[in-house]
Every structure is written in structure tokens, then in C-alpha cells.
Design a binder for these strands. Structure first.
Lengths: 342, 342
DNA sequence: CCCGTTTATCGAATCGGTTCGACTGAACCT
DNA sequence: AGGTTCAGTCGAACCGATTCGATAAACGGG
């Protein structure tokens, strides 16, 4: 079931079969039909490895995800899905590679040995060894997120700074004066995780501009932590009337803590943040949020990667997507709180 | 940066470099060290396509997932993560392929053209064209789930029938006499989706054995549907005191509906089901559930696949994993309901 | 000292495609 | 009629590894 077999049965040479398939040189219509018939009969498909070897490209891209053991957030999952989708539309296959921890062998395998034509990198830190390695190896790559030297790489990213600032602005417009930011986990933020870092910046800036009282706290990525975190906040900052967050995983716990404190959302307390659209819509009440358009971001990453593969010399493009905030039902006018500590 | 270059710089032939790397023939210690030095200096890694072409295997497995657009459930995500992890441990790469709908090209690319040595197939229907195709092509594969002719393929699966029956048994032990099963979406169940189908069987069987009153309903895979579904159930079946479910996505909405009806869990109403452990633990209250050990299942699937690749003639093994139910806090003794319709 | 063995290495074939240069007729031009 | 062009095809080289058979040197036994 190789090209030689097809050639033999069609009574032509291997090169003619190849040209019939690729169309890179003219082939007589009668010949082409004869070959096609044989191919259909035998269900022949060219061997991907042989083709990759000769052509020098694999028609495959790598997708480097955080260690699989550690659970992906909804937003991350959205990225994966959209990258896979976009790649499929471009007739590219996707090789999955967990990275970090004990999975460095997998990363190395994907990156070296010409297994992929390029790589999409998720969850980039401000200092990121994988970026260094990819640059060193000279493999085209696009980051979803960027390092502390963004001009040195090609990336797409979410403008968390602006998005969080918008959330704060929205709350301020509703009359809230005491607002908290619930960030991602302390380790992540300390490690220079971009979204966490930029959320801090955006929050500080917006709070300062609007002359508000702002509190920032970190919170592990799970419901229990979210609950504990908000319970504590309500006690230590009894004047709080609203929270903005980018920590999806903690959100259910945060809701719980508010409910336990008999604070209705949005009646007594407002909640907003940055989240995937369908996820925000599925909450109760639906979350007023700056939506992350994961689909678009993944598609753009793949598109950029395809460009870079075709012409690695292209100037490194950078873009931010900053859609407007989507008003839903989790925010309302500020109302002086009568909380557990009041 | 190919093997010839290494050979030249080490002053040996290409074959000697190959043997030095594979150890399949003895190489003088001095020569081996010299070669290794050159390799380390140049950061050489053998070209995967060339190796695959010669060896006839790619050291890559395919993972066929449901169309990416359609959101993966937590359990499905767990499968993906565990397959990727297990493959990485076995030094295998994972090629991701969405299937179904418009993604059939991607599936075809992966299964033909010798891109992968074998395939792990998720979300199998009772009648599944992909299984037919893989059998036809003769590519080794392992299903997570199985078709209506399970003896014709190799698979691992979760014993939903037993798990749901155990949930019912647990509720019966607590004194519940009127129990509902909230299944997955009607389309899925109608299409012969295994878990949905077997949940039905297990529920019916257990209800009959215990002499209970059982209601079965289907429910779309999202929170809104879950809420609507339970709201309706509470009205149409006012005697209900417990629900068992395998619909994770609908669970938040179900909780919501119970809360709206002023039914406390587990005080007034018990809730149980089949779910991923960490997910069940993260609910409020933590869900008493038959845990799905996704990690183990994925690892077993990969292990079976590796066996099948090594020896496709092996008798098709089949196994079920049926861990005991994990008692948490969402179930309690039955108490006559004073619900909205009472 | 000669011969058989072992050890270390090399050269060539091979995997299954793609692609380049060359060849053959037929059509076309002047 | 002779030369040019072009469609259609073939053979051979090549991509980068692995692997088989052969060879040469070192070694040990009788």
C-alpha cells in the first residue's frame, strides 16, 4: 500500500502518481483517472513520515499545555479547544505536550527532532525557560501570553490590565467605593504569571484613578480557597461592597461565602471579573464580566504561527484583544453593607 | 544537524553514530564518548520522520476527542489529562484529533497515512462509525467506552450501571423510597451513548430490586437545564426525596433549584451521583458519589494500547473499574418532603 | 605461526515519498 | 521541411535515519 504499488497497478511510474496527486505537473486526464481508481480501490494514503522527511515539514503543530495533572481552568480549556479547532481548519494536526515538572522529556521530544513545524505555548511566565529553549532551537512559536521581554517573541494575549480596570470602572460607576481584587494563587502571582501580574497593575491603576479604596488578595484556584478568602475579606474589610476577580475556579466558593453572610448578589454585594463567556452566563446570577474570547485568541495564535512558519523573518507581531464588558446580573448599585462584622 | 554531520565531526561513519546511540552493537568506549561530546555540543536529536519511516512506527498515539467546540465535561477532561500523562510516561507523543461533524478530515488524517501507531477513542456510541473505520484500516485502538458489540474491540470503561445502582442502593439504605435519575441529554441517550444507556439500566434494576418508586428524566448538559429539570421534577413528583445523577454539568443548576425550593441538602433532600472525585469534593456540600477514577482509566487505556501495538493478535481484553461509593455530605436520612407542591 | 573468533567499524541498501532533469512525440510556426 | 515549444512521462537522486553483511584488526589457542 505504498506509492510504488499504486504505480505498478496503474502501469505508470511512481513520479507520475505523485504528480497526479499533487498536480504540480500536468498529467493526462485518462492517466489521472486510472490512478485515482486504483487509489480509491486500495484506500491508499501517502505515508506522513516519508512525506515529512522529504518536504522538511510535518504539517503538525505542537501545543504546549501546563502539566496535565494540574487541572486546566475553563479559560485554558477554551484555548486548547480553539487552537485544536483552528489547526484542524488549516489541515494541521496538533501534538499535545504537557510541560513543566517531570514532563520536560515530552517537551524536548516535541521541540527537537523536527516533530512539529511550530509550537503554540500556553501559560507563559514572565521568565520562561521554554521560551528560551524554543528561541535557542529556532523553532517558530507563538505564545498565548508573553514574557517580561514581549518584543522578543510573537504572541497574542488578553489585556487583563484593561479588563480588570474596566471591571473596577464599572463598579465605580455604580457607586462602589470599597472594592477588592481576588487574584490567582499567591505562588502564581509571585512566579510572575502574566494575567495575575497585569490584573494587579490594572486594579491599582483604576483604583487610584477613581479615588477608591482597593484591597488585593491572592487566592488558590479552588472553591474552598475562594470561600475562605471571601469570608476573611468580609471580616477584615467590613466596608467592602464589591469584588472583582479573575479566579474562575474560586468563584463558586466566593458565592457561597457571600450567601453564608446573607449578602445577596447583586442586591447587597456586587461581583464581577474576567471570565469565559459561556461560563459567566452559566453562573447564578449570570456574571457581569469582561469576557475572554478564547475562540478568537486561539484562532489568532494559529494564524500567526502559520505566518511565522511560512516566513520566520516577519516582524514579530503582537496584539491584544480587549472586548467591552458584558453587563449581566451580578452587579448593581452600591448599598452600604450590613455584614457579619457590622 | 543530521547524523551525517555528527559522523563527520566525530570522524566515524553514520552507522557507528547510530549504534552508539541505540547500543544495538558494541562501540568502543572512546569512540562513544567522542560522539557523545559532538552530539551534546551541537544539540543533535535524530529526525523523528526519518526514524519513523525506517522503523515503521511513529512513537505517537492518537487521541480522538469529541468535537472541540462542544465543551468537554470534567470527566472527559480527566480522561484526556490522564491519557496524555500516561503516554508521556511511556515516552509516547499524543496527537489530538477532534472527530465528528466537520472534523472528519482530521480523523482521517490521523488514522491513515501511518501518522500514529495506535489510537485511544473517547465518547464511543453504541453504533460508532469511527470504530468501524479503525477496524477496517487495521489500526490498533482502545476505546474508553464501547459499542453495542463490545466483544469485537478492546476497551476500558466505567461500570455506570453498577455505580448508579450503588447510588440508588445507598439512598434506599437511608430510607429514601422515591428517587429520580437525572440522565444526560435526551439526544445523547437516544443516540445510544453508553453511560446514559447503562445508567438507565442500572437505575431501573436497582429500583426494581429495592421496590422503590423511580423516575427517570433526561437533562441537557448545562446548569440552566439542570435547574429547570429539577424545578419541574419537584412539582410533578412532590414525593421525591432524593436524586441520583451522572450529569455533572447540570449539577450547579440542580443545587440552585433545590435552594430556591427551600430544600436543604442533605437535610431535606439527598443528592448523589457519579462524578470525578476532585469535582465532587469541591461542591457544596461535597457530593456523596461513586467516584470516577479518570486517572486510572486513562492509564489503563494507554497500557492496553501499547500491548495491542506490540501484539495486535492478543485476545481483546475488557475491563471495568467499579470503585466503591465515597460517602460525603450530600446525602442523609429520608425525611418526608414539604416542598413547593406539598 | 597460522587459523578461528571476537570486537569495532564501514559501506550500502532501505523505508516511501517528492522533485529535478531528460526524453519522446505531437502540435505549431515560419 | 526544419526547428521550437510543450504536454506527458520516466528514471534517478534525495530527505535522514536504521540495519545488514562485510571487512579489518586484535586476540587467543594449539
Amino acid at each position: 500500500m505504498n506509492i510504488g504499488e499504486i504505480a505498478k497497478r496503474s502501469g505508470v511510474s511512481r513520479s507520475t502518481v505523485s504528480y497526479a496527486l499533487s498536480g504540480k505537473r500536468p498529467v493526462a486526464e485518462a492517466t489521472r483517472r486510472r490512478i485515482q481508481t486504483v487509489i480509491d480501490e486500495l484506500g491508499y494514503r501517502p505515508n506522513a513520515a516519508a512525506r515529512a522527511l522529504k518536504e522538511g515539514r510535518t504539517r503538525t503543530i505542537g501545543l504546549v499545555i501546563p502539566p496535565a495533572a494540574q487541572r486546566l481552568t475553563d479559560v485554558q480549556l477554551g484555548f486548547v479547544a480553539s487552537v485544536v479547532d483552528a489547526a484542524a481548519r488549516a489541515d494541521l494536526d496538533v501534538l499535545l505536550s504537557p510541560s513543566g515538572g517531570e514532563h520536560d522529556r515530552s517537551f524536548e521530544r516535541v521541540v527537537t527532532g523536527a516533530r512539529v513545524d511550530g509550537v503554540v505555548l500556553m501559560e507563559i511566565r514572565l521568565e520562561d525557560a521554554r521560551v528560551t529553549r524554543l528561541t535557542e532551537v529556532g523553532l517558530p512559536f507563538v505564545g498565548i501570553g508573553h514574557t517580561s521581554r514581549p518584543e522578543e517573541m510573537t504572541w497574542v494575549d488578553i489585556d487583563y490590565e484593561t479588563l480588570i480596570a474596566r471591571c473596577v470602572g464599572h463598579l465605580a460607576d455604580l457607586g462602589h467605593r470599597h472594592i477588592a481584587l481576588v487574584n490567582r494563587s499567591a505562588e502564581l502571582v509571585a512566579a510572575g504569571y502574566g494575567p495575575g501580574h497585569r490584573a494587579q497593575l490594572g486594579f491599582s491603576r483604576a483604583v487610584a484613578e477613581r479615588g477608591l479604596q482597593g484591597v488585593q488578595v491572592c487566592c488558590a484556584d479552588d472553591a474552598q480557597a475562594g470561600r475562605a478568602c471571601v469570608e476573611k475579606l468580609l471580616v477584615t474589610h467590613p466596608e467592602l461592597t464589591a469584588i472583582a476577580t479573575l479566579n474562575e475556579a474560586a468563584m463558586p466558593g466566593m458565592h457561597r461565602a457571600l450567601a453564608d453572610a446573607h449578602l445577596a448578589v447583586p442586591g447587597d454585594f456586587s461581583l464581577t471579573g474576567v471570565a469565559a463567556r459561556h461560563w459567566a452566563e452559566n453562573l447564578h446570577p449570570p456574571l457581569t464580566a469582561a469576557d475572554i474570547l478564547a475562540d478568537e485568541l486561539g484562532a489568532q495564535a494559529v494564524e500567526l504561527l502559520i505566518q511565522r512558519i511560512a516566513d520566520p523573518g516577519l516582524p514579530h507581531r503582537q496584539l491584544l484583544t480587549a472586548p467591552p464588558i458584558s453587563l449581566r446580573e451580578s452587579t448593581g448599585p452600591a448599598r452600604p453593607r450590613v455584614g457579619p462584622a457590622a
